[in-house]
């Protein structure tokens, strides 16, 4: 193994382990964050109530709305899991680092600051893992009929789709984050994006419940690939894998150079305030 590669791997290991140690200091807070991500279960309750479905009953048939109660329960559990591993909060941390002057310290080191934030997110996902497993176990206790184990192939595809979903969300948020170089409060923009994210990602309802034109339009935006598609893959539903991955690839191909461009322009504008 050449020296450069060895150093690179060591850097990844050290960054992840130090960020994981840091996150463990806040494990109680992270547990609360994980618990606060129960919106999919609320949506499951709402949809089940509205359509008269009962997922705890293994013999439940299709509801008048045409929903399979077990598929619905699996979908929303998968949404919960996908959300836990694709959460992105870089805009808030970066904004604070920018205002407090910590960013200057990062910029003076031969490592692009973005990698610190990426490693912090990955470490946080690892910290969430036990809470997610515990909540999933609790869910299966309450809805035993909904228990399933995805096939290795489905699991592999779902994990890949989750990684891409995380990359997509991270890139979009990091592009918005660069606005910090021009305006001190870039996080306001993130809140603007929350509305289309909420409606088009599949967080509040499975995509097939949307009117066909809306569903088709949604599939051209990045939002369904952040939740609905990885969740469907995880829940074992049928997904056009090639088309989905191709759309995600296109969005990443657009967002990556755009983010790099904004970052470079932003650095020229950087005033190193608070430093």
């Amino acid at each position: 193994m050449n020296t450069k590669l060895r150093r690179g791997l060591r850097l990844v290991r050290v960054l992840l382990s130090s960020q994981y140690a840091y996150m463990l200091e806040y494990r109680a807070e992270i547990a609360l964050w994980a618990l606060s991500g129960v919106l999919p279960f609320i949506m499951l309750g709402l949809w089940s109530g509205a359509s008269g479905a009962d997922a705890s009953n293994a013999t439940a048939e299709l509801t008048p709305l045409g929903l399979d109660p077990i598929a619905l329960a699996r979908y929303f559990l998968a949404v919960f899991i996908v959300r836990q591993f694709t959460l992105v909060w870089v805009i808030y941390t970066f904004e604070e680092d920018h205002l407090q002057g910590r960013l200057s310290g990062y910029l003076l080191q031969p490592l692009a600051p973005v990698w610190r934030y990426v490693s912090a997110h990955i470490a946080e996902q690892a910290t969430r893992l036990p809470f997610v497993i515990a909540l999933a176990a609790l869910f299966f206790l309450l809805y035993p009929a909904a228990f399933w184990l995805p096939s290795p192939a489905a699991l592999l595809l779902a994990v890949l789709a989750m990684q891409l979903a995380f990359a997509l969300r991270f890139l979009i948020q990091f592009a918005l984050t660069t606005v910090c170089f021009w305006s001190e409060r870039a996080s306001a923009l993130e809140r603007l994006l929350f509305i289309p994210y909420l409606y088009l990602s599949g967080l509040i309802a499975p995509l097939h419940l949307y009117p066909e034109p809306v569903r088709r339009l949604a599939l051209w935006t990045p939002f369904p690939y952040m939740i609905a598609i990885p969740a469907q893959l995880l829940a074992g539903e049928e997904v056009d894998v090639v088309a989905s991955f191709a759309v995600v690839g296109c969005w990443i191909a657009i967002l990556l150079p755009l983010t790099l461009f904004l970052w470079r322009r932003g650095l020229r504008k950087y005033g190193a305030m608070g430093a």
Partner: peptide
Amino acid sequence: DSLRVHAAVYG
């Protein structure tokens, strides 16, 4: 811990 990170960043 910070020193370990610094050492890795600077190779």
